[in-house]
Design a binder for these strands. Structure first.
Lengths: 97, 97
DNA sequence: GATTTATATACCTTGATCTGCATATACAGT
DNA sequence: ACTGTATATGCAGATCAAGGTATATAAATC
């Protein structure tokens, strides 16, 4: 989850939504220095948010959705807090009583 | 989002799912020192994740779901990565109701 | 085998963060 | 006013993340 706290890494994931991309492509798409891009990718890797595939010299990155799915599960327990006017009302009433 | 990267703060939110609670209650529930608890609550406050209400000396904290809803929106664009057709349907129905 | 291309890592510096301890603020009850 | 309770803040030190420069690894090409 800490890996997602960096905006640049979220932008990387956003880029990867279009599909597998090489480190260099991401680097240029986001205007990062080569080492910076590589380090952010390492952070995403260690968080399990991306998987890597070798293609000759290049490393092709793609989204691994598992941690995002876990986050979604975590969020699910909070969803009733904002989901719809009826839920809000229900919650309010629940408190009143 | 950085506010959520701290596990203790996530535990605080989990505690607050049960409803409004005072700083001291949270502090004891999580076994934190008083200043530590207060600082984590400040972080949550600055992130807009909680709202505070004064009750005499106590400060009663409650979840403000807005940032979590924003996170949910962000996640939505990734959901198709892990949601099989059936899951997606289930999720959709869950929201509809 | 030397060179080029693509990516990763080491090192350093800077800025942010967490914790512990001490202190300050705010309100309540006497 | 004084004491106790509840919470916040200031400061010190330790730890950790981020960016930059330089260097290392690995594969491809010649």
């Amino acid at each position: 989850m800490a890996a997602l706290s960096d905006p640049m890494r979220r932008r990387m994931l956003d880029e990867l939504r279009a599909g597998e991309q090489s480190a260099g492509t991401l680097e240029r798409a986001l205007g990062l220095s080569q080492p910076s891009a590589s380090k952010h990718l390492r952070a995403l890797r260690q968080a399990g948010l991306v998987r890597v595939r070798k293609d000759a010299q290049r490393r092709l990155y793609a989204i691994d959705p598992a941690p995002l799915a876990a986050l979604d599960v975590w969020l699910a327990d909070y969803r009733h807090f904002w989901a719809g006017a009826l839920d809000a009302l229900a919650h309010h009433l629940e408190r009143e009583v």
